[in-house]
Simulated assay, not measured.
Amino acid sequence: MKNPCVAHRGFSGKAPENTLAAVRMALELPFVRWMEIDVQLSRDGVPVVIHDYTLDRTTNGHGKVREMNWEGIRRLDAGGWKGRAFRGEKVPSLDEVLALVSGKLRLNIELKTVNDMYPGLEQAVIDQVNARNMRDEVVLTSFDHGALQRIKALDPRFRTGLIYDSRSGDPVSKLQELQCSFLSIRFSRLNPLMASLLAEQGIQVMAWTVNKAREMRRLAAMHSDIMICTNRPDLWGDTFIGK
């Protein structure tokens, strides 16, 4: 059993991250089983797929995502920064991504929020996933403990995951406290002892962001269930399947 490959923000090594172009390129690789995306809310409450809290790095727009309506975000170019071939790519809505991947791969949907930055984000994401009958195809993850608690309060049937990036602390107890069965962790924070303990507890682990073959092999040697999240799913294929 090879460690599952997770395309980080789609095939973001070659296509502009969190765009439909990146999603489609990931879907072209048959060994990609999962994809990780980031979701925030526009000012008028539309769940949009974008990583940064501002539009500046990955679009030709400026300012905060939460301060622009969906119609304005939709008009931006989210691909030109990556290369001329991607000019005209748009910031997709969550619903567009769900429609594209439904029945094809599973999604790790990160809710990009801090405290009460996006009131209604959890409900909006839950509603769109349920509308497409995809609850069993997704895990909802976040750094924000409040967001994870709100998800469970709104619909306890959803699987949730904690994103963890600390050199200290006890992620296992925190996962239990938050009723999470999934841990998203920076790959450098993971060690064989932790990996074994998490596996014994039935916690699914995703290590991010792994873009070197030697790190992929090191993680695979820890445990066969560790999910490897990478900008370069093609490199995962070269490493575990061969050219």
Rank of each mutant, 00 (worst) to 15 (best):
M1R: 00
C5E: 01
V6I: 15
V6K: 01
F11T: 07
G13F: 08
K14H: 11
P16V: 03
L20K: 04
A22Y: 01
E28V: 03
F31E: 07
F31R: 05
V32F: 01
W34D: 02
W34Y: 14
M35R: 09
M35I: 11
M35W: 11
I37V: 11
Q40F: 04
L41N: 03
G45S: 08
V49E: 04
V49F: 09
H51R: 11
D52E: 12
D52Y: 10
Y53Q: 12
D56C: 08
R57Y: 01
R57I: 09
R57A: 09
T58N: 06
T59Q: 02
T59L: 05
N60V: 07
G61E: 07
H62D: 12
V65Y: 03
R66A: 14
M68W: 13
W70F: 15
E71G: 06
E71S: 14
G72D: 15
D77R: 05
W81A: 02
G83S: 07
G83H: 07
R87L: 08
R87N: 06
V91G: 04
V91S: 02
L94R: 06
E96D: 10
L98V: 13
S102F: 00
R106M: 08
L107K: 05
I109P: 01
T113W: 02
P119G: 11
G120R: 14
G120C: 11
V125S: 04
V125Q: 03
D127H: 15
V129K: 02
V129Q: 04
M134S: 04
D136P: 00
L140K: 02
T141I: 11
H145M: 10
I151V: 13
K152Q: 13
K152D: 01
L154R: 04
P156K: 14
P156M: 09
R157T: 07
F158M: 02
Y164F: 15
D165C: 08
S168E: 10
S168N: 08
D170I: 03
P171S: 06
V172L: 14
Q176A: 13
E177H: 12
C180P: 03
R186M: 08
S188N: 13
S188D: 13
S188W: 11
P192A: 12
L193T: 13
M194S: 05
S196E: 13
L198V: 13
Q201N: 10
M206N: 14
T209R: 05
R217H: 14
L219A: 11
M222Q: 12
H223N: 15
I226K: 02
T230I: 10
R232T: 05
W236C: 09
G237K: 11
D238R: 13
D238C: 00
T239L: 02
T239D: 02
T239S: 04
F240E: 05
